[in-house]
């Protein structure tokens, strides 16, 4: 006898596992986990229909800490595992938890292909711009010149920008949030869950042991209003402590303008997350500190065919046209002969 959980009474507690959490005290991952547990009960999906799949790295311990089904897989391969699961079990809600090294270095190929297939996964990339679990080597998102255990004279390779990669792969849902921006992160996770197709979310996450303060500019009480910009669909791009600055397009280039100089909100760039062309989203993701405030929120959310759905539609269609497969008919079809 199974007891169906009543969805209406699900709480964060229903999604808490009994495992001891082993992230370093002060790690940004705690906040992301807490917001996820807040969001999950609101989605109308019971724990048994939810699966978290991760690769390797600090972030990839995440599945152990939620009371759903989960696989803590191998380095970089979570999108592959998740693709097989979602393609064969479209009834499940499948999340991929990954990090900057896991997703963009060893697993870059899988990330790229999961996104371009637009398979219905929610991919959450914890970006701390460092290898934490292996104790402090630079990652593919570490900034140029960053001094780490493996780059004593500074990193000499250009970093990857997760959202640029996602948009380059024609992602249908692209968003960014910040570990400590609790309300915003909750909103973004919920939007990601609700999107059909691959949802790609970059979360700025502080590694307080090996790369502490990497995102101080975006989280500091005094600086964040100037260094980040909250995107809202259909709204002009405005930021600043006094909300008196905006982004205006000058040809193909964004520029910061002051709303006090006779420039009105109507002159500003208006955000359109549903634009057919990803050009605007790409332009936004190239706005980087310290030259620009870094946008957070949903960059892009468009509808497109999903791999899992198309795969299963082909099966339905094949059955409609040819009838359900019959093994004996298959074996006996074509050229055969009888030995008496």
């Amino acid at each position: 006898m199974t007891i169906e959980p009543t969805l209406s009474v699900l709480t964060a507690k229903d999604f808490s596992s009994d495992q001891e959490i082993r992230w370093c005290p002060g790690c940004g991952d705690y906040s992301i986990l807490a917001q996820m547990k807040k969001v999950l009960p609101t989605l109308g999906v019971p724990p048994e229909k939810t699966v978290f799949i991760s690769g390797i790295g600090c972030s990839s311990r995440f599945p152990y800490y939620v009371n759903t089904y989960g696989i803590h897989s191998i380095h970089g391969r979570a999108p592959g595992v998740a693709t097989g699961l979602k393609a064969s079990r479209p009834d499940l809600s499948v999340w991929v938890i990954t990090g900057d090294g896991d997703a963009l270095s060893i697993g870059g190929n899988h990330l790229m292909h999961a996104i371009r297939r637009n398979i219905d996964l929610n991919i959450i990339l914890f970006n701390n711009r460092i290898y934490g679990l292996t104790k402090g080597q630079y990652s593919p998102t570490s900034i140029l010149g960053q001094v780490t255990k493996s780059t004593p004279m500074g990193a000499i390779d250009n970093p990857l920008h997760p959202l640029s990669v996602a948009i380059g792969c024609e992602a249908t849902f692209v968003a960014r949030s910040i570990d400590v921006n609790i309300k915003h992160l909750t909103m973004v996770l919920k939007r990601a869950a609700e999107h059909k197709g691959t949802s790609f979310v970059e979360v700025y996450q502080n590694c307080n042991v090996f790369n502490d303060g990497a995102f101080d500019y975006a989280t500091g009480r005094d600086t964040k209003a100037e260094t980040t910009l909250e995107l809202e669909h259909g709204k002009p791009l405005i930021f600043g402590k006094n909300r008196d600055k905006g982004i205006r397009l000058n040809g193909m280039h964004p520029e910061i303008v002051s709303l006090n100089d006779g420039i009105s909100e109507d002159d500003l760039l208006f955000h359109d997350e549903q634009a057919d062309e990803p050009t605007l989203a790409y332009l936004l993701c190239r706005m980087r500190n310290p030259d620009f405030p870094e946008p957070i929120g949903v960059f892009r959310a468009v509808d497109a065919p999903r791999y899992d759905e198309s795969l299963n539609n082909q099966i339905t269609e094949a059955r409609r046209v040819r009838g359900k497969g019959d093994l004996q008919k298959l074996f006996n079809a074509g050229e055969t002969w009888m030995v008496e």
């Binding site: 699966v51 799949i53 089904y69 696989i71 897989s73 191998i74 391969r77 999108p79 592959g80 595992v81 998740a82 693709t83 097989g84 699961l85 979602k86 393609a87 064969s88 079990r89 499940l92 190929n109 899988h110 790229m112 292909h113 795969l311 299963n312 099966i315």
Partner: peptide
């Protein structure tokens, strides 16, 4: 359900994911 994966690794990890399901 056939899945022409992006590489050999995704080919087997997808099969593992499907097996989990």
């Amino acid at each position: 359900r056939t899945f022409q994966a992006e590489d050999e690794i995704a080919a087997i990890t997808s099969a593992i994911g499907a097996a989990f399901g």
